[in-house]
Design a binder for these strands. Structure first.
Lengths: 214, 214
DNA sequence: TGAAATATACCAACTGGTCGGTTATGGTTC
DNA sequence: GAACCATAACCGACCAGTTGGTATATTTCA
């Protein structure tokens, strides 16, 4: 066979350096944290040069902001296209969401934990732009859940007075906490248990609406 | 008056450098993260020299392990001496614990967030000794709560099948998640709401045992 | 009892290396 | 020709860790 042109090196196709760097940030930062990740780390992971980095981003912090926004884009598409999202009943969509989150817990912890949660823990007091971008990612995601909670509350009156937006943010709190505790124990079981308790809470809240278990 | 000997400089008394460095780690790392905190940062915060640092700790990582253990010592004493801990009823102790946690949320976020939770987020994959020490701090704390949950479960049969150890770890999950989301939103309200939802969950679980509200 | 010997607890200055970021040049593709 | 990126040398600041030395506390022993 002839010597094939090296058309499939690790180097991304021309024009993709920016996206490759953002994806590299998601991967490396989730594993080793924001401050411990150097610009060179990101460049080598993305397979691009340092010149490419500073062509697209004026600073490491500016990449952090863009990576948080890109995280929102990637995750919102993931959940919007998931099967559970098609269900007509809002409460079923919420339980489907939590089952979907549980099903994502495969592989090493850094493969399913949250980029913005990890990052904001480090920079909330030292980089307001990154903090703000991470905050927007979480609150925007919660806002989509809040719509389902609001519909569920009107359709299935809950046992206790609860607010849709507060419940939606609480789901994110439980997931973020599950990531932290799973990292501490070295076991994804803590996250799965937390999701189970959250489902338990919702089952008790919307007790009248629960149908036969799956 | 005679020229007083300079007995009250900012420098800590001899023999306290180790504790001063551990306390400095708790303070500075909670604010700016583990990797972003340099050894010099810790030394200047503690008011000791770099030589003192490496006299007491062989490396920055070794200080991290010691700081996690010291965090356990400090926090377990804090909760053991709190008033709520005197209550004879286990469920009352648990609600008292959560009210106490809520009452601690004063001042800037870094003054009441968790050192081990912040640290383990960064190093869980890169420093097994620190990860293990942080994990022990959280699981040990949860184990003390688990004793109260076990007593509460036998005294007040819950509405759904729950495990004491799992519930205890879930409380830590909710708190850790509350720290993360509060950092993201820049507002402690997320943490307070999360504690309220957790109390809500326990109230629904142990519904028969709830007395008049405070 | 007291001075010498030793161990403990630090300090200031320094080292080799890495950090984020810059600059300058040039190749490649649309 | 403009957008996109590689290469590579470079900078000042900062990093973890080391060094040689000093002041104080404790022990030893005459």
């Amino acid at each position: 066979m002839p010597t094939s042109p090296q058309n499939s090196t690790t180097r991304p196709a021309r024009g993709n350096a920016r996206i490759a760097l953002l994806a590299a940030a998601h991967k490396v930062v989730r594993r080793q944290g924001w401050a411990a990740t150097s610009v060179d780390d990101l460049c080598s992971e993305a397979g691009v040069s340092k010149g490419a980095f500073f062509y697209h981003f004026a600073s490491k912090d500016e990449l952090g902001v863009a990576a948080a926004q890109h995280w929102s884009d990637v995750t919102s598409a993931l959940f919007a296209n998931a099967a559970y999202h098609q269900h007509p009943d809002p409460l079923e969509r919420l339980f489907g969401y939590l089952d979907f989150r549980a099903a994502l817990t495969e592989g090493p912890l850094e493969s399913f934990t949250c980029f913005v949660g990890t990052t904001v823990q480090e920079v909330f007091a030292t980089s307001q732009p990154i903090r703000s971008a991470c905050g927007a990612s979480i609150t925007d995601h919660a806002a989509r859940l809040a719509a389902d909670f609001a519909a569920a509350i009107t359709r299935y009156p809950p046992r206790a007075a609860v607010d849709a937006a507060s419940l939606a943010l609480y789901t994110q709190t439980v997931l973020q906490g599950g990531f932290v505790v799973s990292k501490a124990t070295g076991d994804r079981a803590a996250l799965l248990d937390a999701i189970a308790h959250l489902k338990n809470y919702l089952s008790l809240l919307f007790a009248d609406a629960r149908r036969s278990p799956s």
